Lab assay of single mutants.
Amino acid sequence: MQIFVKTATGKTITLEVEPSDTIENVKAKIQDKEGIPPDQQRLAFAGKQLEDGRTLSDYNIQKESTLHLALR
């Protein structure tokens, strides 16, 4: 499925993911596309910060959802 990640600079990244993917996997995909190390990424959805060990389906993130990326 496709999801979107909006960066602090307003850029939107499109990612191909599975509901079973962990947040860690998603951060690795962002690193592949943007070169941002996962340990510098903070992802949020619906106002909640997402934890590495959880999956997209844990957070009820569905196709075409938009996550927000902040850098630490």
Rank of each mutant, 00 (worst) to 15 (best):
L67W: 02
F4K: 15
G10W: 05
E16S: 11
L69F: 05
Q41T: 06
D39P: 05
P38M: 15
Q40N: 13
G35K: 09
T66I: 14
G35T: 06
T66E: 13
L56T: 02
E51K: 05
K11D: 12
V17P: 01
A44F: 07
G47K: 06
Q49S: 08
D21A: 12
E51Y: 07
K33Y: 14
L15D: 00
E18K: 12
K33V: 14
K6W: 11
T12L: 12
Q62G: 05
D52M: 06
R42F: 11
L50S: 01
I30W: 01
G10C: 03
V5K: 00
I23E: 01
N60T: 07
T12E: 14
Q62T: 10
E51I: 09
A46L: 15
Y59I: 02
S20K: 11
V17E: 01
R54L: 09
F45G: 02
A28F: 10
T66Q: 09
T22S: 15
T55Y: 13
V5N: 00
A70I: 11
T7C: 03
K48R: 10
T55H: 07
K27V: 02
G53E: 12
L69T: 02
K48L: 15
K11A: 12
L43E: 00
A8N: 10
I3T: 01
Q31E: 11
M1R: 02
I23D: 01
K48S: 15
T55R: 05
F4N: 05
Q2A: 10
T12M: 14
V5L: 12
L67E: 01
V17G: 02
K6L: 13
G10R: 02
I3H: 00
A28Q: 15
E16K: 15
T9E: 07
G47Y: 05
E64I: 04
L56M: 07
S65H: 11
L15G: 00
L71N: 09
F45W: 08
G47M: 03
L67Q: 01
E24V: 13
L43F: 03
T22I: 15
T66C: 03
I3V: 10
N60P: 03
I13M: 06
V17K: 00
K48G: 07
Q49K: 06
Q2Y: 14
L71K: 13
E64Y: 11
R42V: 13
G35A: 10
A28R: 11
